[in-house]
Amino acid sequence: MSFENPSREQIGDILASAGNIAVVGLSDKTDRTSYMVAGAMQSRGYRIIPVNPLVDGEILGEKCYHTLAEIPEPVDIVNVFRRSEYCAKVAQEAAEIGARVLWLQQGIISKEAAEIAAEHGMTAIMDRCIKVEEAITMHGRNRT
């Protein structure tokens, strides 16, 4: 079975109902794409939870966790800024914390991660930028 991303309408629904977004691989360097995308999502009212094992302290004013399992609150979307070969492990960790959505950023594709997500009832989105999709799908919509 070939993978297919949810429709734009479904992606809009996911984003409209999103609470916490854990960003795996979020850099503390302001010139990195992950930092810019997460910052833009934060400025649009989303709660960003940084996940980076190399960072102690905060990123974008939020406590940074070393793993998804350390996050002490529910996570709706796990947004991934890691190379494809690391995504299956992230998908497994996302399943273990009960995330609803596994979102691999633009340029990241992992069939194995998508299969793990499907096995655990998560929606998988691959090779899409969450910031771009938010701008397209949420234009004129309110978050719930």
Rank of each mutant, 00 (worst) to 15 (best):
S2Y: 08
E4R: 15
I11Y: 05
I11Q: 06
G12V: 01
D13Q: 15
I14A: 06
A16D: 00
S17M: 11
A18N: 09
A18T: 14
G19F: 03
I21Y: 00
A22W: 09
A22M: 14
V23P: 03
V24E: 08
G25P: 04
G25L: 06
G25I: 04
S27M: 08
K29G: 04
D31A: 10
R32N: 05
R32V: 06
R32T: 13
S34W: 05
M36D: 10
M36N: 14
V37K: 06
A38P: 08
G39M: 09
M41F: 05
S43P: 02
S43G: 04
S43Y: 00
S43I: 04
S43D: 13
S43T: 12
S43K: 14
R44Y: 01
G45I: 07
G45E: 01
Y46S: 01
I48A: 03
I49G: 03
P50H: 01
P50D: 03
N52E: 00
P53K: 04
V55L: 02
E58D: 14
G61E: 09
E62Y: 07
C64H: 03
Y65P: 15
H66E: 07
T67S: 15
T67L: 07
P72V: 15
P72W: 13
P74N: 05
P74F: 03
I77Y: 10
R82H: 07
R82S: 09
S84Y: 00
S84G: 08
E85A: 08
A88L: 08
A88D: 13
A88K: 10
A88M: 07
K89V: 11
V90F: 00
A91V: 10
A91Q: 06
E93K: 12
A94H: 10
A94W: 09
A95R: 01
A95P: 00
E96Y: 05
G98D: 10
R100W: 01
R100S: 06
W103L: 12
W103K: 09
W103D: 12
L104C: 13
L104N: 09
Q105K: 09
Q105G: 06
G107S: 05
G107P: 00
I109N: 13
I109R: 14
K111N: 11
K111R: 14
A113R: 03
E115V: 13
I116S: 05
A118M: 08
A118V: 12
H120P: 11
G121Q: 12
G121K: 05
M122T: 07
T123Q: 11
T123A: 12
A124K: 09
A124Q: 12
A124L: 10
I125V: 15
I125T: 03
M126S: 11
M126Y: 03
M126F: 02
R128Y: 06
R128V: 01
R128H: 01
C129A: 09
C129K: 10
K131D: 09
K131H: 06
K131V: 10
E133P: 02
E134K: 01
A135T: 04
I136H: 02
I136Q: 07
I136T: 02
M138N: 01
H139I: 02
H139W: 00
R141T: 00
N142E: 13
R143H: 06
